[in-house]
Every structure is written in C-alpha cells, then in structure tokens.
C-alpha cells in the first residue's frame, strides 16, 4: 500500500470538506474492496475519509412500500435484520452470501454498489428492484446509476447516503460462485414487483457490469415459473469470458440461476 492520510468524518459536511481539501481523496466505508485494491497498489488515494462513524449513514428503515438501508450498514446487519428479512427476504439472503463472515462484518452496501464491480452481489438487487440511490445531492435510480464496469453516476464529491429498495411481491437471488475467488461467476436477482412487472438482473457475467436480461423478463412476465425459462436462450454476446468460464458457460449459468431464483422466490 502506498502512503495515505486517514481521517474520520464526523458528518456529511465534514466529509465533503475533507474531500475538498484532499488532492486525490477517496471515501472509505468497510474497505473490503478498497483496502485490498490499495494493498495491491492498484489504487493510491492521497487521503482516506472514513464515513462509517457518520451517524445518519447506518441503519435500516422500512415503510409499506420501501426498505431504506443506510450506505454504511454492514452486510451482516442487513443479513440479520428482522426488518429486511420481513420485507425483502431476498436482500437479506443476498447479504448473507456476500464474501465470508468476516467480510460481512466490515463490508457495507454503499461500498458494494459504489464501484459497479462486475462481481459484486448488491448491484443485481439494486438493478432488478429498480432501487434508488440517495446521495447527499440527489436520488439516482438504478438504470442511470450503473454506467459500465467499475463506473457509476456517482460524482467525485458525492456521497451515497442510502439505498431505497421498493418492496417486491416476489424476489430471490441465486449465485454461482467462482470456485477460486468466491465472487459471483453468475449471480441472478429476479423480482416480480407489486405492479406485476418483472425484472431480472445478473452480476458477474457482463462485460459492462451488472445488466438486465429482457428475454428472461419477458418469459417470466408471461409465466412466473422456473419452467417458463427452460427454453429461453441467453446470448453469450457481451458476456465475460476468462479462465474461469467462457461467455457461453456464463450465459448458461444466467439461465440456470434465474430458474433457481424463481423457484426460490415461489
């Protein structure tokens, strides 16, 4: 890791001020992606501004239609939240499957979606549910948020405050992990919204990060069942291909994981 300066932000204004004063600052939440990246010397921020002690950034709230999760809320707290388990059990299950227990104790939802890491799990849920990303400046919806691999609409001086998920009628997430890294080789989130619309988003497979699969959505829109997907081809076009699996294999996994997610969603 290159030398860096660490400071804790007391509140959002303090965080912005500290970022403004830094030559090449970065916000630090759980650090479960940023610190490994810095250890490999692939990132060299001059300053790290710790957001996790800002009181407003952690916590989980729900109303009849939405669940709102503070950006600095740890995966473990999402996974074990009675509120999340009750309203959107698919989100709790997804959080319970991120990394390993020690990573879940540190990692945060804000950090997970801030980078559009192609193998992170939360982006699939955010995109499939059409969640809103609430920053200190605005609310950005999922479609506009993800802008390609490792790229989002987040401004350099902007802080993610919370993620607001609409509560779906049915949803589930199914992941096939990369055997080595245990990140998603294909992670598919399926959702049937209360208005009847269906969305399917997958992580781990797209060259441009998380993406939706309209053919699968159409089939499920017509018939919400795993069987409805049996003969729906997923094109390998635009999917990742590497030493762990061809695009064709990943395309297959998208279909298989989508079927399993639908079965799990009921």
């Amino acid at each position: 890791m290159y030398a860096t300066n660490f400071s804790r932000a007391a509140n959002l204004a303090d965080a912005s001020a500290k970022m403004g004063a830094a030559t090449d600052g970065k916000y630090l939440a759980g650090g479960q992606t940023l610190i490994p990246t810095m250890k490999q010397r692939l990132a060299a921020p001059s300053d790290l501004i710790d957001l996790t002690r800002i009181p407003d950034l952690s916590g989980i709230k729900a109303d009849a239609d939405t669940v709102t999760i503070g950006a600095a809320t740890r995966h473990y707290d999402v996974a074990t939240s009675a509120t999340v388990r009750g309203a959107i059990p698919a989100i709790a299950a997804l959080a319970a499957g991120i990394g390993d227990p020690a990573v879940r104790h540190m990692g945060t939802i804000g950090g997970s979606i801030a980078n559009n890491d192609p193998a992170a799990d939360y982006p699939a849920a955010v995109l499939a549910l059409g969640a809103g990303i609430i920053t200190d400046k605005r609310t950005i919806f999922a479609e506009a948020w993800f802008q390609g691999m490792f790229s989002t609409a987040l401004g350099t001086d902007e802080i993610v405050k919370a993620i607001q998920f609409p509560i779906p009628a049915k949803a589930a997430y199914a992941k096939f992990p990369n055997p080595a890294s245990r990140y998603a080789l294909a992670g598919v989130f399926v959702a049937k919204m209360k208005n009847g619309s269906v969305r399917v988003a997958a992580t781990g497979v797209g060259e441009g990060g998380v993406l939706r699969f309209p053919a699968l959505e159409a089939a499920l829109q017509a018939n919400w069942s795993a069987a409805a997907l049996a003969n729906v081809a997923v094109s390998p076009e635009g999917l990742l291909s590497d030493i762990h699996g061809s695009a064709e294999y990943r395309a297959n996994l998208v279909n298989v994981m989508a079927r399993r997610a639908v079965a799990a969603a009921g």
């Binding site: 660490f6 630090l28 650090g31 479960q32 610190i35 490994p36 250890k39 790290l48 710790d50 473990y76 227990p101 020690a102 990573v103 104790h105 540190m106």
Partner: peptide
C-alpha cells in the same frame, strides 16, 4: 466483538 480480517482494515480504523 465481531470477527474481521485484520489484513483488510487499517490500524487507524
């Protein structure tokens, strides 16, 4: 009180 990876956390954190 929670298990964490001490290689993935700064001492200052």
């Amino acid at each position: 009180g929670r298990a964490v990876k001490s290689c993935t956390m700064l001492a200052v954190q």
